[in-house]
C-alpha cells in the first residue's frame, strides 16, 4: 500500500492530502482507543435507538423467508411433524416422570451428604436473529436485551446442549459467543469417567478442543462431555459435546482431544437463556473465568 499511496500523495492538491491525513489519524486514533478501552459496545449501547432498528430491518428478509416456507409447506408435512412431536413429547414425559423419582432420591442422598446444590432452572426463550455482525462468524444475535433482563455472562442452551454465552447486550438485542468460538472456554467433565478439563473453541471455529489432557487419562471417542459447574458460570450437567478423536500431542505428555458440539449451533432458531446462575463450586467466577469479555477480540473473516 505504501508505495502506491505515496505516488498520489505528491501530485495533488495539498488540501486534499491534509484532509486525508487528518481523517486517517482520527480513524487510527479511534481504533487505538477502542482497542485499549473497548469503546465500541459502549457507543453501540448509547446509539441503540439507531442501531437496533437497522438490525431488525436486516433480519426482516430472513423472517419473511421463514414465514413463506411455513405457509407453503403442505398440510401433510405439518401433520407429520405434529405427530412426530407428540410422540417425542410423550417419550420425554415418560422420561421426566422416571427422572423425577431419581431426582428425589438424589436430593435425599445429597441432604445426607450436606450439600446444597439445586437443580432449579429459570429460563427465558429467545429467537436467533439473522444479522451479519461483521466479525461474528461464531457469534449469533438474539432478540432479547437488557429490557428483558438479559445480562452479560448468561449461558444459552438449546434442546441438545450448551450453545454458548451472552457477551454483549443492547437494550433489546444481545450477542452470544458460540462454544466453538476460539475465545470460548467451558469447564467440562467426561460423563463416563468424571475426568475434568476445559473445552475451548477450535481455531477454525467448527469444533471443541481439550488441549491439556494427561496421556494416562481414560478418554476415548464417543465419550460425552458435560458442563462441570466449576467456575460457576455454567450450571453442571448440561451436554457440551461428544469426543470424536483423541491424539497424542507431539510434545509428548499430553493428549489433544477433539469433540463435536452437542447443540445444533447453526440450525437453532429458538434458544433458552438460563437465568439462575448455578451455585459456584470452587473459586469465584470473576477470577477463573477463561473468557475475556473485553480487550483483544478474535473475529471471523466474513
Amino acid at each position: 500500500m505504501g508505495s502506491k499511496f505515496s505516488s498520489f500523495l505528491f501530485v495533488s492538491s495539498t488540501v486534499g492530502k491534509l484532509r486525508l491525513v487528518f481523517y486517517l489519524v482520527l480513524a487510527v486514533g479511534m481504533m487505538v482507543l477502542d482497542y485499549n478501552y473497548g469503546l465500541l459496545w459502549q457507543v453501540r449501547y448509547r446509539a441503540a435507538v439507531v442501531v437496533e432498528p437497522l438490525y431488525w430491518l436486516a433480519d426482516l428478509p430472513a423472517r419473511g423467508v421463514h414465514a413463506l416456507v411455513l405457509s407453503f409447506v403442505g398440510r401433510n408435512r405439518l401433520n407429520e411433524e405434529n405427530q412426530r412431536l407428540k410422540e417425542q413429547l410423550l417419550l420425554a414425559n415418560v422420561r421426566i416422570n422416571h427422572m423425577r423419582s431419581v431426582a428425589e432420591q438424589n436430593r435425599r442422598l445429597k441432604e445426607l451428604l450436606d450439600t446444597s446444590r439445586r437443580l432449579k432452572l429459570r429460563v427465558q426463550l429467545a429467537r436467533v436473529i439473522s444479522v451479519d455482525l461483521g466479525m461474528y462468524r461464531h457469534r449469533l444475535g438474539l432478540n432479547v436485551g437488557t429490557r428483558q433482563g438479559v445480562k452479560v455472562g448468561q449461558p444459552v442452551i438449546d434442546a441438545h446442549g450448551v450453545i454458548g454465552q451472552i457477551t454483549q447486550v443492547l437494550p433489546s438485542i444481545s450477542v452470544m459467543l458460540l462454544v466453538t468460538d476460539p475465545e470460548s472456554a467451558i469447564p467440562v467433565v467426561v460423563e463416563r469417567t468424571g475426568l475434568r478439563g476445559v473445552a475451548y473453541g477450535s481455531r477454525d471455529g467448527g469444533q471443541l478442543v481439550l488441549p491439556n489432557i494427561p496421556r494416562s487419562a481414560d478418554i476415548k471417542p464417543g465419550d460425552r462431555l458435560l458442563t462441570s459447574g466449576i467456575g460457576g458460570r455454567f450450571p453442571p450437567g448440561f451436554p457440551v459435546g461428544k469426543v470424536v478423536s483423541v491424539a497424542p500431542l507431539t510434545t509428548g505428555a499430553f493428549l489433544e482431544v477433539q469433540a463435536d458440539p452437542s447443540a445444533a449451533l447453526r440450525r437453532s432458531r429458538d434458544v433458552l437463556l438460563l437465568h439462575d446462575l448455578a451455585v459456584s463450586m470452587g473459586p469465584s467466577a470473576s477470577k477463573t473465568l477463561p473468557v475475556r469479555m473485553t480487550g483483544r477480540r478474535v473475529g471471523g473473516w466474513q
Binding site: V28, D34, L133
Partner: peptide, 19 residues
C-alpha cells in the same frame, strides 16, 4: 456502529477508498 471489529475500521477503509 453496526458491523465492525474496531471503532474506526470502516471509517479508515472508506476514507482511503474515497480519496
Amino acid at each position: 456502529l453496526l458491523n465492525s471489529v474496531l471503532l474506526g475500521e470502516q471509517a479508515l477503509r472508506l476514507t482511503l477508498l474515497a480519496f
